[in-house]
């Protein structure tokens, strides 16, 4: 991997639209060459952050730095940022090659070099043979490939992507995800990727910043986010999870619905709720939590069971499927086993 990416820093950025606060004291540091994803529901401020970095909106307060230098006074066209938009934003009056050439032409590059570099970028996304097509003659996936080539053609040190795969169907999205990741590794740009798709975020990112209401709720690697979500909101948002309410507590243990009494490590505070990943629950012969299968869901590589414990709590568990083995039927009694260290203590 080449080290050509720039560092990016948001310092206490605040942006309001009327009474709505889109970004509230927003701080974020992105390392050189890092793939950083802003993940959150719509209205969480992730696109506002991207637009502020691109220079489409002025920030009210705070500062944005690229490589340690403030860009607040730099106009959009001088920021040297590559960007891929959800709506592709290909120029409809220019053919594929002319679209990809655009950033180089704006940089007043020599004609022959423009052509050579544009073709190279198109080869990178495997579209060289469509160079003379017009955008309206392309499929959605091809359009987005052209948009990616156009964003990368001038080898920007910062690449912004605003839900670039959102308009594509699932299969195409998954194959483009892998391609995108490979391209980024090859080019080494620092990437800020905006999405509301948690699966996409987990697949692509070096780090994920979960945003809600203009603030970062948690920022860490995909694995940490999955294993140690900081709140019920995140635990629910990332993957599937059993969120179990916590009842009474004493110094040494807490009462968790469905699971019963759970020991509490000395010095830890009583959590708001407890999370337990469905794939970390196993069926045991005897010494587990007794429950009854209510529903069996076949999902290809795995089988999901919805079980109900004796106190009426619904628990989801996932098991890898073993061919030739019949799944449990509804009404069957089982015992649920789990390890204490796999429980996620959620503070809110």
């Amino acid at each position: 991997m080449k080290d050509t990416g720039a560092t990016i820093e948001f310092r206490n950025v605040r942006k309001e639209f009327g009474a709505f606060t889109a970004l509230d004291n927003f701080c974020l540091e992105v390392g050189a060459g890092e793939f950083m994803t802003l993940l959150g529901p719509s209205g969480s401020g992730k696109t506002t952050a991207l637009n502020a970095l691109a220079g489409f909106i002025d920030v009210g307060q705070g500062d944005i730095l690229i490589d340690g230098i403030s860009i607040r006074q730099t106009p959009t066209e001088k920021r040297n940022i590559g960007m891929v938009f959800q709506s592709y934003s290909l120029f409809p009056h220019r053919n594929v090659l002319a679209n990809v050439s655009f950033p180089l032409q704006m940089r007043k590059m020599h004609k022959a070099e423009v052509r050579q570099r544009s073709m190279k970028a198109l080869e990178m996304v495997q579209l060289a043979e469509l160079a003379q097509r017009m955008p309206h003659e392309l499929s959605g996936g091809q359009k987005q490939r052209v948009a990616i080539a156009r964003a990368l053609v001038f080898e920007p040190r910062v690449l912004l992507m605003d839900e670039p795969l959102g308009a594509l169907d699932l299969k195409l999205r998954e194959s483009l995800q892998l391609e995108l990741k490979a391209l980024q590794k090859q080019i080494g740009s620092t990437v800020i990727f905006v999405t509301h798709d948690q699966g996409e975020a987990l697949t692509l990112s070096d780090r994920i910043a979960v945003m809600d209401q203009g603030e970062i709720q948690q920022i860490c690697t995909p694995q940490e986010l999955y294993d140690q979500p900081a709140s019920t909101f995140i635990a629910n948002f990332i993957g599937s999870n059993n969120i179990l309410r916590v009842g009474g507590a004493d110094q040494h243990s807490i009462q968790v619905e469905g699971l019963g009494r759970i020991p509490l490590k000395p010095g830890t505070e009583k959590p708001y709720a407890v999370g337990l990943r469905p794939e970390l629950i196993r069926r045991t012969e005897s010494d587990g939590v007794p429950a009854m299968v209510e529903q069996t869901i076949f999902s290809g590589e795995a089988i999901r069971y919805i079980a109900r414990t004796e106190d009426g709590t619904e628990i989801l568990l996932v098991e890898p499927r073993h061919p030739g083995e019949a799944p449990l039927a509804a009404g069957q009694s089982i015992a649920l086993g789990f390890d204490f260290e796999n429980l996620i203590f959620l503070p809110k």
């Binding site: 220079g55 066209e77 960007m83 938009f85 934003s89 655009f102 704006m106 001038f154």
Partner: peptide, 9 residues
Amino acid sequence: KAARVMGAS
């Protein structure tokens, strides 16, 4: 916007 971010005044 796209044109601007790609370097057009």
